[in-house]
Simulated scan of single mutants.
Amino acid sequence: MTNPDRLHWNRRRGGQTVSSKLWLQKRLATGTLTIRVADVLPLEQAAEAHRRTEAGGLPGRLVLAV
């Protein structure tokens, strides 16, 4: 995950501008940060994961299991 301290952009939420760092911190603290996972692949299939990611169209992230 990107270090929240390095995020500088803002996003509009309900008419208010909210710092992305604060947005992330709130969701991490409340346990409401959700990540969509398209598939979990063994580390040995890292090349396949890379190909699938570059091809696009995934409904979430690919996770490599170590």
Score class of each variant (00 low, 15 high):
5 D>H: 08
11 R>H: 03
47 A>V: 13
41 L>T: 03
24 L>N: 02
55 A>M: 11
50 H>C: 09
27 R>A: 10
10 N>V: 09
57 G>E: 08
40 V>R: 15
42 P>L: 11
49 A>W: 00
9 W>H: 13
62 L>I: 15
5 D>Y: 02
49 A>K: 00
39 D>M: 09
40 V>A: 14
33 L>F: 12
19 S>G: 12
12 R>Y: 01
8 H>I: 03
30 T>N: 13
35 I>H: 05
4 P>T: 01
31 G>K: 01
18 V>C: 04
40 V>P: 04
13 R>T: 08
31 G>A: 04
56 G>Y: 08
51 R>W: 04
12 R>E: 14
28 L>R: 07
53 T>V: 13
5 D>L: 08
14 G>M: 05
29 A>H: 06
33 L>D: 06
5 D>V: 02
6 R>S: 11
58 L>G: 02
50 H>W: 07
21 K>E: 12
1 M>Y: 03
1 M>R: 10
58 L>F: 06
29 A>Q: 13
1 M>I: 04
54 E>V: 14
44 E>N: 09
22 L>Y: 02
63 V>Y: 04
58 L>T: 02
27 R>V: 01
54 E>R: 15
53 T>R: 10
27 R>W: 01
21 K>C: 10
21 K>G: 08
28 L>W: 10
55 A>C: 11
37 V>Y: 06
4 P>Q: 01
13 R>L: 12
39 D>Q: 15
31 G>F: 05
23 W>H: 14
41 L>Q: 06
63 V>A: 05
16 Q>G: 00
1 M>T: 09
43 L>T: 07
14 G>W: 06
22 L>V: 12
20 S>I: 11
42 P>T: 09
29 A>S: 14
14 G>D: 14
23 W>Q: 05
10 N>T: 13
60 G>C: 08
59 P>E: 07
5 D>N: 11
44 E>G: 12
34 T>K: 13
60 G>N: 08
61 R>M: 09
35 I>Q: 11
23 W>I: 00
